[in-house]
Design a protein around this nucleic acid. Structure first.
Length: 340
DNA sequence: AACGCGTGGAA
DNA sequence: TTTCCAAGCGT
């Protein structure tokens, strides 16, 4: 698809660019719950949840509301136990985020008397808060002038300025942050940052964007928006098999608590050697993706007394009336629901 | 700098 | 079905 070329660059007349973007957002900006508050704690919760996670997931499945009901303030979150914290995060993925959020809450209590700092440096010093999230808290909660560059902003800027350099590489990152800073509306940082992100979400979408109704189309230099942004090649997906055992005894099932690393602290079906389980009946099979793997999860019916039924490190017997309350990854939960 | 970390929605 | 990848961060 060919689109018209820009008549001017955003940096030729930043005020005109800000006005066009701001005018559009004032009229069409969406009403998210985190835009109804200036509480830096609530803003931070939303931003951490939204890291690499779609708005529809966070909002539609109630994660944000539920989290703030259970942990309404910094002190409550700081005191949260792993179990309830993870349970609130179950299904959202990147579970390390939840623990880092709690560690940030602790640090805010200890270092800042319970009040979030309104400065970049102390925010960046908090665990789980990087450059984007710090800028988001500063601009969205405090309405302070701080640029942000996320996937949306990177895509919008790459297209506006027709930059085909890989956006993950160092030099392009530097340029993106500098450009976001130059364009930032210092009179309205909250609205401006919200607007440029939302433009990326609504009009300047990945793939084929909607340039015809774009409020800043006259500033956009690219002729081929679908080709931008350029990203580094990602690692190939690897197919792997995972063989698990459904092991029961009177009113109980054997589950395995994950140790350090992936999905730490969550409960899964016990994984065993394929050679031990493959002779046993296959009860269920489903696929799920995790990081760069495409996993085929097999569930075998394993009688007590079978060598694979011997308890391993982290395994525990759980009541059949109680397993559902545990923190379990979605794939394992679905498999358990299918076979029990 | 490149990789690990989850999940599900959309094309 | 496959592929892409979303309001990133830490190492």
């Amino acid at each position: 698809m060919l689109k018209p070329v820009a008549r001017q660059s955003p940096t030729d007349d930043p005020a005109a660019f800000r006005a066009a973007l701001g005018g559009w957002f004032a009229k069409h900006g969406k009403d998210y719950p985190w835009r109804r508050t200036s509480d830096p704690y609530a803003v931070l919760v939303s931003e951490v949840m939204l890291q690499q996670t779609q708005i529809a997931t966070v909002l539609g499945r109630g994660f944000y509301t539920r989290f703030l009901e259970r942990f309404p303030d910094v002190a409550t979150l700081a005191a949260a136990e792993d179990e309830i914290l993870l349970k609130t995060w179950e299904g959202l993925g990147y579970y390390r985020r939840a623990r880092m959020l709690r560690e940030s809450a602790k640090a805010v209590l200890e270092r800042h008397g319970g009040n979030f700092p309104g400065e970049l440096e102390p925010l960046l010093a908090l665990p789980g808060i990087g450059r984007y999230t710090a800028g988001a808290v500063l601009s969205f909660a405090f309405d302070r002038s701080a640029p942000i560059v996320d996937g949306n902003v990177a895509r919008v800027l790459a297209r506006l300025f027709d930059r085909a350099d890989p956006i993950d590489a160092g030099p392009m990152q530097k340029w993106l942050w500098e450009t976001a800073d130059v364009l930032l509306d210092r009179d309205h940082p909250r609205a401006h940052n919200s607007a440029i992100m939302e433009l990326g979400q609504t009009h300047c979408r990945p793939g084929v964007p909607d340039c015809l109704s774009c409020p800043v189309a006259v500033f956009c230099a690219t002729r081929d928006p679908a080709s931008l942004p350029v990203k580094a090649k990602r690692q190939a997906i690897e197919e792997i098999d995972e063989h698990t055992a459904l092991i029961r005894r009177e009113g109980q099932i054997l589950l395995s608590r994950q140790g350090r690393g992936r999905r730490e602290g969550m409960w899964r079906l016990p994984v065993r050697e394929k050679a031990d389980l493959s002779p046993l009946p296959l009860l269920h099979r489903r696929k799920y993706g995790i990081t760069r793997y495409r996993v085929s999860l097999h569930v075998h019916d394993c009688p007590a007394g079978h060598p694979a039924a011997i308890e391993a490190e982290g395994d525990e017997w759980v009541g059949l009336d109680r397993w559902a309350e545990l923190v379990i990854p979605p794939a394992d939960r679905a498999a358990l629901e299918a076979v029990l």
